Each structure stands twice: as structure tokens, then as C-alpha cells.
Simulated assay, not measured.
Amino acid sequence: MNANSGAARAAGLLAGYALDVALGDPQRHHPVALFGTAARRLEQRVHADSRAVGAGYTAALVGGTFLGTAAVQLATQRAVGALAPSGPRRGPERGPRRGRPAAEFLTVATATFVALGGTSLVREGDEMARLLESGDVPGARRRLSHLCARDATDLTPDDLARATVESLAENTSDAVVAPLVWGAVLGAPGLLGYRAANTLDAMVGYRSERYRSFGWASARLDDLLNLLPARLAALLVFVVTGRREALSVWRRDARLHPSPNAGPVEAATAGALGVRLGGTNTYDGEAEARGVLGDGRPVEVRDVARANRLSRQVSAAAVLVAAGTALAIGRRGRE
């Protein structure tokens, strides 16, 4: 990738992020939802209590998404190059290569808009804040399923607030920071390939009897792809808030969380907001004891709005970091 393509990739990331902020996820026919439908149908056909079969399933869907996006980008590059003026050019930008920066911008902007879920995430956070602040606890219990799979039947308002804050922290990393990181490094294929892997983890990456073996590869791939983004998200929590507690709680408590990637960002969020996260949660009727992150006060309803603001700030910082990374990669390629 040369400097022009790097600049085009950076511009595409910024444009796609702006589209997500302005429009959010489409209510119907979202490409990720269509991918999920196709993945579910394939699972029903090939499912077996086997890691090998699950690995093949994951490789086919994630690899197919990555390679398919790369093919679309190449076709776009050739189409744009064919439309470009045919006058003499200096340097290597001849033939289809003329279309590379324009194709990079178009495909990255589109893929960024498709892959990001930040605006839909904070809208759910806003709705949870509204329900809790108005005292509509039954409505908040029903709404929590839009954010996580936690059993909300007996949760109090403060329990619901804690669940919301934890989900906002983890999903800001998964749905915003991580796709931007992979978009900066690998362009549109990285964006959509990551989103495919993350979607499969949400679908089959559970330790249930059905998915313990079949979903193993999807869960491990998602863990691997989020190792760097989750730590960048935790660092950005510190950067945008300036709270040293974000770093100290991250270093001390992240290991207590059962997830290697949710731990850092939730611990940093706990430190930044001055609250305690973690504890015992119930999923599918089974209680799961998690470590306590932070040593502040318990989460209250008013903290949902604070966590939502933090999510927006981290997302804005992440797209600037991603755009800068894309520019740096482009300059490096030129050298």
C-alpha cells in the first residue's frame, strides 16, 4: 500500500464512522443480520460435536467473507481505473492501479459503516438510562436483552445499571475499537472479516453442550482478534478521562474477569468511573461468579449516562487512532 492508498483508507474509516454516527444500523436487511442468517442455516446443516467441524465452519465463513471482500475491492479498483482518464501517468499508477485510492476509499467507507455498531450501542444505553431513570424496571429488564444475554428476571435497578455499564464497556471494544483496528491494518477485508468472526462468536461461541466443541474455534478466533483492540480500548478509557485509576484498576483487576479481553476494558471503565463492576451474573439459569473490578462505590442508575458518554468518547478517539495508523502504514509502504 502506498501513501495515496493509506490516505484513502484513513479517509474511508473517518467517512464510515461519520455515517454510523449519523445513521446507526439499518433497521432492515442489515448485511450483518443477513450474514447471521446464512451462518445459522449452514450450522444447521453441518453441526457436529467436533472441534474440527467447527473450525472448518469458522474458516469457511470468516475466510469467505475476507476473500470475498478483497475480490469486491479489486473489482471496484478495476472499474474505477477503467473510468479514469487515459492520459499519460508518471510512476507506477497505470491501468487498474489508477483506481486503487478511490476503490480503497469506497470499500473501506462502506465496510466501516457496515461493521461498526457504536451508534446502535449508545442508543440502547440511552434507552436503558431513560427506562431506569423513569422507574420502568420491567421495561428495563426486557430491554437488557438488547445488550447482553444476562438473566434479568430478578435484577434491581442498580443491578440493571451495572449490567448496562459492563455491556457498554465490552461492546465499545468489540463493536467499535476492534473493527477500526483491523480496518486500519487490512482495509475493508479486515473490517468485514473481523465482524464475521465476532458475529460467529456471539452465535456459537458459548460453553453450552451444543457449542462447547463446535463453537471452540469461533470463540478462540474472536479472543485472538480482540487481544490488541481490547487493550487499546482500555488505554483510550484512560486517555479520554485522564483518570489514573483507569490504569491502576486495569493492571490490578483485569485478570479477575473470565474473559481475557473484556477484563481490561471493564476494569479500566470501573476505575475511570469510580465504581465497582463484576460480581455474580446469571446466564441460562446458571450463576457465574466473576471477580470484582474496582474499589469504588456500587453502580447506580445515574452511571449509565456516564458510561454512555465514555463510550462515545472512546469511539471518537479510536477512529482518530485508526486513521492515523492507516496513514502511517501508507507512508511506510511508500518508503
Results as ranks from 00 to 15, higher is better:
13 L>M: 02
250 W>G: 01
110 T>S: 11
329 I>T: 02
75 A>F: 04
190 G>Y: 11
94 R>T: 15
303 D>S: 06
230 A>N: 07
8 A>M: 08
6 G>K: 00
1 M>S: 11
229 P>R: 09
149 A>K: 15
236 L>Q: 10
245 E>K: 02
185 V>A: 10
111 A>E: 01
13 L>G: 04
118 G>M: 06
143 R>L: 14
149 A>C: 09
268 A>P: 02
154 D>N: 12
259 S>V: 11
144 L>R: 12
287 A>Y: 09
191 L>E: 05
73 Q>F: 06
128 M>Y: 09
133 E>G: 14
191 L>H: 05
112 T>D: 03
27 Q>R: 15
45 R>S: 08
173 S>P: 02
7 A>S: 13
12 G>A: 01
80 V>L: 15
33 A>R: 07
27 Q>G: 15
39 A>P: 04
261 N>Y: 06
300 E>C: 06
175 A>N: 12
220 R>W: 09
217 A>G: 03
331 R>T: 11
56 G>S: 07
288 E>D: 13
251 R>P: 06
57 Y>M: 00
99 G>S: 06
78 R>A: 14
146 H>P: 02
257 H>K: 07
3 A>Q: 11
243 R>Y: 02
183 G>I: 01
98 R>N: 08
271 G>A: 00
298 P>F: 07
232 L>T: 12
27 Q>D: 14
165 V>K: 05
213 S>T: 13
72 V>I: 15
187 G>Q: 08
257 H>S: 03
189 P>Y: 02
71 A>Q: 10
131 L>P: 02
32 V>Q: 01
33 A>V: 14
254 A>Y: 05
